[in-house]
Amino acid sequence: MTADPAKAGSNVSLARRAWAIRRNALLMGEVQGQGYIGQALGAADLLAVTHFHAMRYRPGEPEWEGRDRFYLSIGHYAIALYAAMIEAGILPDDEIATYGMDDSRLPMSGMASYTPGMEITGGSLGHGLGIAVGAALGLKRKQNPAFLYNLLSDGELGEGSTWEAVMSAVQWKLDNLIAVVDFNNQQADGPTREALARTPEAAKWAAFGWYAQEIDGNDLNALVAAFDAARAHAGPEPRVIICNTRMCKGIPFLEAREKTHFIRVEPDEWTKALAILDAEKPE
């Protein structure tokens, strides 16, 4: 079975997939009473598009050689990727209740050795794109036509090693590499744009030699168009999609919080958040 969910995946809309990812993430956040729920809610739309439109994979066979690879640099976004992988059937949904607990396969920071489908150990930021460069070289060496997706964060662009990888990907003409930057303008100590000069984003990547797009990362139509363009681009350039996203997207009372990098949510607020989501369940 080749699950190319974009084609084979029934009539479930991307909006419904994004909704389900948010819901899975909220349920996991509730287990711990806190966490990187803001990032998961913000990235749910782009993950709906990677996992239910752009990528080829087999849910029951995470090591399938023909799969598109998805490298999560940002280990703390594991909650978001677990939510997407549960929706995709790569992980069973009955493990939601184990998120971040002793002996769970779903640790709070994503690690390859713990979780089926988790390709790399993230968490030390500035690593993912470099590993992706090597894996993309390896895919080319094997003449494997798979794409390599790397989800990185805006804060991660402050790491010099990311830019070593940016240059290297151009040097090796890695047209099979698609970097996805979740630009939510929040890092641990505050707004990313107040920490290191970050603009202009797309122009910077383009100047390095990448095929760069910058979009509203919470707009499903824009995401679909950008991923389609990234895959279809005929040039030898590596591809980057800068996704401007809103932390906590979809839950207005959480979106309004000033500090959203690692949020504490009161027990009754999880119920409230789920109720908001459930009231707006898409077709």
Partner: peptide, 16 residues
């Protein structure tokens, strides 16, 4: 660029 050299070596190893 030693950091990306090491990371890329890891990526190549991941691919066998």
């Amino acid at each position: 660029a030693e950091q990306v050299m090491i990371s890329a070596a890891a990526g190549l190893a991941r691919e066998g």
